[in-house]
């Protein structure tokens, strides 16, 4: 039998070739990935998955408990508080740029800002404030400045549930950019982020259990040897290990990826400044 309409046939072929998530939007993508992880690890709650490798590795979990209170966390938070409250000329400060001095705002970030047509991360918002007041910007890849500021700022949202919104076609486009980044193979090793974190979550790479994508945005900045490591800094480390030239911290590419990851963590409580082990051949 001949197919009656070649155009329709072609359209059906194209639709069949598209991944489901390309048509379904952010919420469907989130649900698909959450269901996949739940199917693999039905006894682990999203809040438990947020602890990364420790969710799958009792020895790592015990190590984390031995490192509580987290070494260096109080110092990092205090260093961040000093930068956050430092007065600019005319008496303004970073704290003055955010509602309620920045308390309980982190759960809503990143967010798509239709006025500037960009995904705004906490790093972006901090630098927007500094720019507005004629101050030098912070390097989003620097643990000693942006890292400590975020250690403090996110500590003000401890326990707040992540509630990132993707609520317009433009926001969906940025989410899709982040999803595509996550699922695209790149670098000399030919890995995608998803190669490990979706397809092999909970398996051991070297001596480290691979964290699941669900919950990945809940506990940053991590404290490693007392130094805050933001989600973007951590992603850059992974890209480097993949043999890919990392996008700059603060770039739109990393902002879109963070938007995607944060949306996957919706509903999970923020627990920033969590302990993570020193990186070496065994701990990745």
């Amino acid at each position: 039998m001949r197919f009656p309409d070649h155009g329709l046939f072609l359209a059906l072929l194209v639709l069949a070739a598209l991944p489901l998530h390309a048509l379904a939007g952010a919420e469907q993508v989130r649900a698909d990935i959450a269901n996949r992880v739940r199917g693999q690890y039905p006894t682990l709650s999203p809040a438990e998955l947020a602890s990364g490798s420790a969710a799958f590795d009792p020895a790592r979990q015990a190590q984390a408990e031995r490192n509580n209170p987290v070494p260096g966390a109080a110092e990092a938070i205090e260093a961040g508080r000093r930068i956050w409250t430092r007065k600019f000329a005319k008496g303004r400060s970073l704290a003055g740029c955010f509602p309620n001095g920045g308390r309980r705002i982190a759960g809503a970030y990143p967010q798509y800002d239709g006025r500037v047509k960009r995904v705004v991360t906490l790093e972006t918002a901090i630098n927007q404030c500094l720019k507005t007041h004629g101050q030098p910007l912070l390097d989003a890849g620097d643990p000693g400045t942006m890292g400590v500021v975020l250690a403090y700022l996110r500590s003000l949202s401890e326990g707040q549930k992540i509630a990132v919104r993707v609520s317009s076609p433009q926001a969906e486009d940025r989410f899709e950019e982040g999803r595509r980044f996550y699922f695209t193979r790149m670098g000399q090793q030919n890995y995608a982020c998803a190669s490990c974190h979706v397809h092999h979550a909970g398996k051991y790479f070297g001596d480290t259990a691979i964290p699941a994508p669900v919950g990945a945005a809940a506990q940053w900045p991590y404290l490693r040897d007392g130094r805050p490591v933001t989600l973007q800094m951590r992603v850059r480390e992974c890209l480097d290990r993949m043999g890919a030239a990392p996008f700059p911290a603060g770039s739109d590419e990393l902002a879109h990826l963070e938007y995607f990851l944060a949306y996957l963590s919706n509903g999970i409580a923020i627990r920033p400044n969590a302990w993570r082990p020193r990186q070496d051949a065994g701990n990745l």
Binding site: Q188, Q189, N190, Y191, S195, C196, H200, G243
Partner: peptide, 13 residues
């Protein structure tokens, strides 16, 4: 095609 093993020869690893 779904293998996560690096292409050691093709990518000159």
């Amino acid at each position: 095609p779904d293998s996560v093993m690096p292409p050691y020869g093709r990518h000159h690893l």
